[in-house]
């Protein structure tokens, strides 16, 4: 499903962390959000996923206005996300973490859960199977029974992806999924994201690893100080002077320009 962000904004104590940002993320594509630290990327995700309430702007899923919906209602409409500052369930095993992501598919009611009726146990087995498959996809199957508190940062990043995937989402927001991963793991995450988009899901990616961004994005949105300063395909963005200026500073950009011409 396509995700339309239209003039989204929020301010914290007078500082506009996100300021009138608009773009569209299409199904089957990876749309990347890049920008320097503090640009407002994570805040944008928090607005879109219902963690914060936007002070201006609209969010639409397939044309349907979902602005201001609670986070769990957005999840029911197919939105899932991962978190830059990990939000795993540390007291649970990796498997239980991912099984929690099956919540929306589980049909047992509270009474049968309390009484341990076969229905409840059956749902649990079903969730266990799909969680196991998601762990396999994320390359974590061997760690299924390890407590999340004993996993590495890079593994937890992938655990969050598995947990988001198992919700059956159609829109997936990934906040720096490759942070803390080594080169091999980054490549695996890269492939995984690619595969997810190929399934027809709408993927929105925040990532600092530029090689990864350039390789897998169909569309890139550049934020700086809360505002969108550029938007386009990887090639356009790579050569956009505003983007270079934002990353290197105006002076650095001039030098880069000079070096390129020398």
């Amino acid at each position: 499903m396509s995700l339309d962000i239209d003039g989204l904004g929020i301010a914290f104590g007078g500082i506009k962390a996100v300021d009138g940002v608009s773009f569209t993320a299409k199904p089957g594509e990876v749309t990347s959000i890049i920008g320097p630290n503090g640009a407002g990327k994570t805040t944008l995700f928090n607005l879109v996923s219902g963690v914060y309430r936007a002070s201006s702007g609209r969010v639409r899923i397939d044309g349907q206005d979902v602005t201001g919906l609670a986070a769990h209602d957005l999840a029911r409409r197919g939105m899932a996300r991962t978190f830059q500052n990990l939000q795993v369930f540390p007291q649970m095993s990796a498997l239980d973490n991912v099984m929690t992501g099956c919540h929306m598919q589980e049909k047992s009611n509270l009474l049968s859960d309390l009484l341990g009726l076969p229905g409840a146990r059956c749902e649990t087995e079903r969730s266990r199977a799909s969680a196991m498959a998601a762990l396999e996809r994320a390359g974590l199957a061997d760690l299924a029974h390890r407590p999340a508190s004993e996993m590495s940062y890079g593994q937890l990043k992938r655990l969050e992806i598995a947990r988001a995937l198992v919700t059956g989402c159609t829109i997936l927001l990934l906040d720096e999924p490759a942070a803390g991963c080594n080169a091999v793991e980054t490549r695996e995450v890269d492939d995984l994201i690619h595969a997810i988009a190929d399934e027809g899901k709408t993927v929105v990616l925040i990532e600092h690893d530029m090689r990864m961004v350039m390789r897998i994005s169909s569309h890139i949105v550049v934020l700086d100080q809360g505002r969108k300063i550029a938007e386009g395909g990887p090639e356009e963005i790579r050569t956009n002077p505003h983007v270079i200026a934002a990353y290197l500073g105006a002076h650095g950009a001039a030098e880069a320009e000079a070096a390129a011409h020398a």
Binding site: V51, A71, A75, Q91, E106, D113, A120, R121, R163
Partner: peptide, 27 residues
């Protein structure tokens, strides 16, 4: 029974991360 059930997992999820629990559709 509750602890190992779907409802129980939701409760334990809230214990560890409210915001993640919401993002998974848990009310």
């Amino acid at each position: 029974n509750l602890a190992g059930s779907p409802s129980g997992r939701s409760l334990r999820a809230i214990h560890d991360s409210d915001v993640a629990a919401r993002s998974l559709g848990i009310d």
